[in-house]
Design a protein around this nucleic acid. Structure first.
Lengths: 197, 197
DNA sequence: CCTTTTACTTGACACGGTGTCAATTGACAT
DNA sequence: ATGTCAATTGACACCGTGTCAAGTAAAAGG
């Protein structure tokens, strides 16, 4: 908890971020990042032990830049369970495209790199907490579909909102971001809520 | 269309299959496969141009072995749209675990290899046709949710049934295969069908 | 029977990308 | 001046894929 974040370290993170965004998370080599940061390739290893470490650090840096925490405020301050669900889905849906490029880089490594998988899972676990909170709020209001217990409802919402689903719907299916957000809100309601009384 | 499939070619495919299944689709090198097949590494390249080519061929070989075509018969012979939807979801749900290990190997490459992406997309496109057929059958019966047009309904069903969702639910969430199949059938109905009249 | 063809082996090598190491430079502090 | 810190330079090891050339062994065919 300290190390006042050396100046070049930040330059490296910025360079990495820039390249990832530009390439949508694909094919960014250490040497590319070094060049972009105006620094030698070896300097990267002075600040980050491995490529995956750098990638992880970049996601954290991005969160910091974007102020990701503030994003969930409306969902946490929502009064009814339904409002909370809507707010959460909306917030997450709009968060995805902002972090996608750098998230994607980690996502790609997840299948082959232990550290990447761990870091990614942690992030997804955090997001899952949002799902759980929304589900619990619904339950409290007696609006949770009676066929679903909290865990299962959370599992489903969590899966529904996965980055890969967003990827498939917006990329492969050509949905606009607005369409995605709107449809997922509707879907979440339809699945989680009780039949209309 | 010919080349009576040399004997060693089959041995290679079997070896590849075996290793992929054993490793759940991870970390299978050309040299491993060669060793398993009792053949030199270079022999692989005599039969398959690249590793991805071999992987693709292995998926086709697996289909052949499993008789994947027969699997969709019940869904195609279903009379009502609802039956068809159920049968399709059921068939696909039970198909996934059988092809997962070898599919996973392709899936991993998809993000970085052009040929792998193309092959994978083709497979998923085939599966999408099943989704579309089910949706159209529902529509014909007047049971398709009136908020959804055919394309959108197909997009949703297709995404819902993705391998990555199966992966997340059965691996990360710990669902059993039976639970997965049952829940996805319910979900598909809930999303695609009209509100109960 | 000898020759060609075919399938496979052997061993060496290039390439790309990550990660390591040792020696060097330059700036700033004391 | 001296030491230290951050960065540079260039070389190198490692791994896995893919390539190449030369050799072997057995079947095919005159």
């Amino acid at each position: 908890m300290s190390s006042p974040i050396s100046e070049t370290k930040v330059r490296i993170l910025q360079a990495c971020l820039k390249l990832l965004v530009a390439s949508e998370g694909k094919d960014v080599r250490m040497s590319d990042i070094a060049k972009e940061a105006g620094v030698s390739r070896q300097a990267l290893y002075l600040h980050f032990a491995t490529r995956v470490d750098l990638l992880i650090a970049t996601t954290l840096y991005l969160d910091e830049v974007k102020g990701s925490d503030d994003r969930l405020v409306p969902s946490r301050t929502a009064t009814s369970g339904l409002e909370r669900l809507d707010a959460f889905v909306e917030a997450w849906a709009n968060y995805i495209p902002e972090v996608y490029p750098v998230g994607k880089a980690l996502l790609v490594m997840k299948d082959t790199d232990e550290a990447a998988a761990t870091a990614w899972n942690k992030r997804m676990q955090d997001m899952r907490e949002g799902c759980e909170a929304a589900v619990l709020a619904l339950k409290k209001d007696g609006q949770l579909n009676t066929n679903l217990n909290e865990d299962k409802a959370t599992d489903i919402l969590w899966t529904l909102l996965s980055i890969r689903n967003w990827e498939q719907l917006t990329r492969d299916c050509g949905w606009s971001q607005a369409e995605y957000a709107k449809t997922l809100k509707a879907l979440a309601r339809k699945i989680l809520l009780n039949e209309s009384p």
